[in-house]
Design a protein around this nucleic acid. Structure first.
Lengths: 256, 256
DNA sequence: ACAAAAGTGTTCCTACTACACCCATGA
DNA sequence: TCATGGGTGTAGTAGGAACACTTTTGT
């Protein structure tokens, strides 16, 4: 009964959105030396997909992406970047509408909305792992992080989206700094290096990496700390926000 | 009478397209040492804009872009690249619907369609200037090239689109070769250099430029020719298509 | 013969790469 | 005390940048 009410509300809500336009977000997080992506599992199924959303009639595209992301992660200020719009007619690989609707107990009306041909604008986000509260949405009952190299077969064309998001992120790394929104406020140089190595999928020289990073002048060194770890205690660093923003807009050539 | 019939056909045709989704193309050409963009002038007005189009319900986004472009330029095989999707609610700067509809003698029904909130996918194309037959569409009566640095104030957010298209093109130049579709089949090294200089907006060293270009192994030198010009006759070159395509997909680091 | 453009090669310097030793800490 | 990881500096090298003279052709 309660569920039925929700469905009605959902269908009603659809009128408020632009038809045929959707957004999907590849949300990158970093934890335990692993690059991770936030995925959702549909109710009553074992099918996973990217978090997404729709756009209100009077809402900017970027605002819609931020709104969706905020709902899924609880975060409001995040690095969010549009990277590609997916507009093929056939975007529904690995997806049996009939089956899913039956499992969800949804009327065909909803199904038609779901499978209506959408042009989907792809965004990727870089968020601080620890600050995220994964939250499922109406269609889904589980929301959790997946290691980037263990992503299962996803619904729709979402595997392609993640692949292209990662490719774009890697390229972005070559002309913009990264890390401000992926790392906690204070972090060590090895932390930062591990992040870069994980994104790029290759190891980097410790000394050269440090030289380069410091050379860009966007880092501030604090006191020694990093208590708790074994071995020699590494320094903690923090991004200088102003200089970081400037480097972002200047598109300085970075790691390549 | 004939006009009225066309309007009816136009309105009827709208049903075949995805609502709220459009595409716009920044078509770059190169002539007389100038980078140029193809613009359209609306009937009965002095308002210019980018060529664009809509997407059929069963048509891929890229296909729609190619189709629109083909209509405007007569070219079918062109380099076409999606670069950004423009999704702000307010994309209608410099545009008085009322006034324009009156001038065009169009019913309000058409006006509503025109000003309905669209998410527009931006593409840019690189075409060979000489091969293009600029062709106006239903709403426009003039279609011609404009020098990139003399673009007037355009309708909608089309000035922003051109700016971002050029920025993306410049960046693309740093990791992909350019020129295959912008230059005629045979061209001289100074031609190619002029193209690069025009796009980048800066002069380059003749010798270093030649060394680098030849170094990438995508050019074939032909016989001396380039008849007609004064002074020493430069060699003609041609792109090696296979190697060019490979360089495109490899994303080798190029001029930066 | 001269002016204007094109062909070609070398030197210089910067920036990235590779690499080794010492220090701090927990077990 | 030893193993592990972190802090730091230097030498080598490859590739981009700067640069000059000769050749061709039309006027």
């Amino acid at each position: 009964m309660e569920y039925k009410k929700e469905v009605i509300r959902f269908i009603d809500d659809l009128k408020n959105y632009l038809p045929h336009v959707s957004i999907d977000c590849t949300i990158f997080g970093f934890h335990d030396g692993q690059l991770k992506v936030l995925l959702l599992r549909w109710k009553e199924t074992n099918d996973w997909c990217l978090p997404g959303g729709r756009v209100y009639h009077n809402e900017n595209l970027d605002a819609a992406a931020h709104r969706s992301l905020q709902k899924r992660t609880g975060l409001s200020e995040i690095f969010l970047q549009q990277f590609h719009t997916f507009g093929d007619v056939i975007r529904y690989k690995n997806f049996s509408v009939q089956e899913t609707l039956t499992k969800l107990g949804l009327p065909i009306e909803v199904g038609m909305e779901i499978i209506s041909r959408d042009v989907s604008v792809g965004y990727y986000a870089l968020v601080e792992f620890a600050g995220v509260t994964p939250t499922p949405d109406f269609f889904t009952e589980e929301c959790r992080w997946w290691d980037i190299d263990q992503i299962p077969l996803l619904l729709f064309d979402h595997n392609d989206m993640i692949t292209l998001a990662l490719k774009t992120l890697r390229r972005q790394l070559s002309y913009q700094p990264i890390g401000y929104t992926l790392l906690p406020d204070k972090f060590t140089m090895p932390d930062l290096q591990q992040l870069y190595e994980t994104i790029l999928g290759q190891t980097l020289d410790r000394r050269n990496f440090q030289k380069r990073m410091l050379g860009y002048g966007i880092l501030e060194r604090l006191e020694e700390r990093k208590i708790g770890g074994a071995h020699k205690a590494p320094y903690l660093y923090r991004f200088n926000k102003e200089k970081y923003e400037k480097a972002l807009s200047d598109e300085i050539l970075f790691v390549g």
